[in-house]
Structure formats: C-alpha cells, structure tokens
Nucleic acid binder design. Structure first.
Lengths: 234, 234
DNA sequence: GAAAATAATTGTACATTTGACACTACAAAA
DNA sequence: TTTTGTAGTGTCAAATGTACAATTATTTTC
C-alpha cells in the first residue's frame, strides 16, 4: 500500500465569522470558548474537521450547532496556517464567513455557547489569531458586497429601502445619497415592491421589498460597480 | 499540559497554480509527479507543509524549488478539503496561484521535475482534484485582473503596448479595441514610456514601457472597472 | 526611393452612468 | 386642520464608456 512516509500530521479546524445586521449595525456573533486553553475567552465559533466531512461541511455543521440555521450564505475566506497560531499543538484553521438574518437567529435557543452579538467595530479581544480573521472577513465583505448583492443575505425576507440604505451605510461606514442609492438598487431589477408597508419606523411607513431570488441567482455576477467610491475595498 | 484529545490529524499540502505568459498565450506550469501514487502523471507542483513553516512559506519554498524564483506574485486561492481527494490518506491542500515572468523561469535549470508549460485551455488531465484547482485559479485570475493590475506580473520588466494587449485578449479570450485599450491603460498613469523599441515583431517597432512600481503599489486597489465587459468574471 | 507593414496618435459622435442637489407625498398624532 | 417626521421622487450637467476611421510615423525590404 502506498504511503507518504515521514510527513507530519496536523489538526485542522474551521472557524466561522458570522455576520448579522440588526437594522442599525453590522454585527459579529462570538462565543465564550468552553474548553482549554483560553476557556471562557471570547472566540469565533469553530471546531475540528472530522474524518468523514469536507471543510465546507464542517463549517456548515458548526454554523448549525450555534445558530440552528441551514442554507445560509457561506464562503471560504482563507486558511490560517502559522505554525504557532495555536499554543497547544499545530492546528491550521480554515476560516469561513457567513451572512445570516439576525432575526432568524434570535428565534433559536442556544444558551450553550453563551453567544453574543458585537458591533463590528467594537468587539472584545479574541483568542489566537481570530481578530485577524475578523478583520480580513470584514475587508472581504466590503470587497464582495461592492461587486455582488450579497448583503441581501443579512436581511429578512421583507425589507424596506431605508433599511437597505442603513445597512450599506453601516457596512461601508459612509453616507450615500438616498436618491442615487435607490435609483441604482432599483435599476438592478432585483427587487420586487410589495403592497404593504413597514410602519414601525415612521408615520408614513415605507414599502416593503422582496428579493427576486431567480434574478438574484442569475445576476449575482452582474452587480459590479455598485458602490460609488471603491476605496473602501483596500 | 493542555491537549485536544480524540481529534484526528491530517496531512496538509500546498499546491501551486503557476501562470506564465509567453507573448502569445497564457500558460500553466505542470510537472510529472515523481512519487506514488499517480507517479509519472501530470500534476501541479506541490508539497507538504513542514512543521516549522506557514502555508505561505511552504508555497514560496515549493515555487522556488521548481522555478528558482523568489518574490513573485503569490496569492492563496482556496483550501481543498474533501475527505477522499487523496486516495492514500486524508490530505488537505491549500492552493496558491502564482504569476511569473515566463522568461525569467526559462533561465533556470530544473530538469528534475520534467516540468512543462501548457496553454490554459489545453492542458493534460491532472491528478486528484488539480483540474478543479486550475479552473478556479483561472476564474480568480480573470476576476482579480479585471479589478487590479496584476497581469503586469506576467510580463518582463520591459514590454510593449501590443504585447500588453495580446495578454489581456488572451486572458479574457476576447478582442479589445486597441485605441480604447491603450487610452485606458495610459490613463492609469502606471506606465513609463521608454526611449527604445522592440523591433522583433514589426518593422516600425513598438516602444517599450516599464511599470512604475511605486504607483503600482500605491494604486493597486484603484484599478477597478478596467475590463469593459465584466461578464468574464463568472 | 517606393512599397509594405505595423505602431501610434488623434478624433468624434453617441449612449450611458454618475453625482449633486431640493422639493413633494403621506399618514398619524396633536 | 395643522403639525411632524420620514418616504419617495426628478432634473441636469459632467464624466465616462464605446464604437467607430483616418492619419501619421517608422523602418525594412524590394
């Protein structure tokens, strides 16, 4: 039988950067690590890749463990492989980032991990190189979202134009002209205007929109040049 | 001492998708695998991550082994982690792609690996999931190159406008209007016109250009919206 | 020195996209 | 019915992108 003699074996983990949007701010889902080392410290949700699963399956499993959600937007970010990143023994971590509808998450019960949502620009110190993962994920989110309509993944099924604007403004930490913004958004033809309104935020109420899933899938790659000043991408 | 009990360990490899441009076509550097399994079959250049090195260092080492080149453009592509991707035992592979000046490579001697350059759309069957890696790298290259001036990494220090046009046309498998092309390229202010000409391709000769490295570094992220019709990115 | 071949420049008309900007519409509450 | 707070539009000028052609420049070769 063939072998690869003399090669070292390592642990391989998956860590998930989970983004949510609460209507005000872009947030990050963190947990309190429940094993040593660094037990009790804030951390990304992660776990080891099991023998029978791919790394993507591992990420989905871990995401489901924490949030109870399936079928969410998930993308491989990058593999972190510095030899000393885990003090216990060499562990490479494949980082994934996920975009979830925070309100769906809230329906789930998961006290087990003592999870908490933190604003993306004000989260606690994290273990190991998890902060580097978060910062990279944040850049990638901006990059990707300036080219593709992925931010819709953060919203509930029905959302309003002001909510959408808020979200983009928070993600890019910039102000957009609401007239130009809505013109651009609507020109993509990705949204379907609903008959009912959200009146929780104003007297007049704002019309709900739904995403046209078919067109979303079909035009995912044709959303380019969406954000006015793409210096955010750096 | 803290441990992670009961977790499986795996081999971790690095595979390099090495792109070159010979003045005519975008090419891929492949080797003949010199160990079992699949010995003698075509493969990407790869190797196992050693205990003292990060995955990026491993990729650089492997690149150097094959090409003798250092300081080349190198970017992590994605980690391939299907449980059965290597028939011998579970091995995760972190794929990197590199852009090199093919002429610099040719100066190196490296008969050891029986390496060969193949056109990107006509390369032999590769072992394992290496073909999937190549196809992903190709997509990524187009994507990235439509937003950032990375294709200059494929050219020698001095190059001409027709060469540049050739390269873009081959990478995107599309024809570009040379007038609009050169206008756009020059408007980026990334090129420095030289006094001498390349007369190998025509009687009149074409002026050489050099990349302004300072501006290249400074404006790397501001090259956006370069390619006319970004449907190639899919 | 004329012909041939390609490089390089300049132009231009048109459609499209962008960005700056200010007012009206609506519905509830007072 | 007036007030209040937010939602929702319209216009214009400038910049950009694109599809075209014609001309000039340079050098080798015939």
């Amino acid at each position: 039988m063939t072998r690869y003699p003399g090669q070292k074996h390592y642990l391989v983990a998956v860590d998930c950067i989970i983004f949510g949007f609460d209507g005000e701010h872009l947030k990050l889902l963190l947990i309190k690590r429940d094993f040593e080392p660094e037990k009790g410290k804030w951390s990304l949700m992660g776990g080891f890749v099991q023998p029978d699963e791919s790394s993507e399956e591992a990420a989905k499993r871990i995401l489901f463990q924490l949030t109870g959600l399936e079928g969410v937007y998930l993308e491989q970010l990058e593999t972190f492989g510095r030899p000393d990143r885990d003090p216990v023994e060499r562990t490479l971590s494949i980082a994934y980032f996920a975009l979830i509808d925070i309100h769906q998450y809230e329906k789930q019960i998961s006290g087990k991990y003592h999870a908490g949502w933190y604003p993306i620009d004000k989260y606690p110190k994290l273990i190991f190189d998890h902060s580097a993962m978060v910062e990279l994920a944040r850049k990638r989110l901006r990059y990707k979202a300036s080219l593709h309509p992925i931010l819709f993944e953060l919203l509930p099924e029905k959302f309003t134009m002001p909510q959408l604007l808020n979200m983009y403004e928070d993600v890019y930490d910039a102000a957009f002209d609401k007239r130009n913004f809505s013109r651009k958004i609507l020109s993509t033809d990705l949204l379907m205007k609903q008959k009912d309104k959200d009146k929780s935020a104003s007297k007049k109420g704002a019309f709900y929109y739904k995403l046209n899933k078919r067109k979303y899938t079909a035009n995912f790659h044709a959303f380019l040049k969406f954000i006015p000043n793409p210096d955010h991408l750096i």
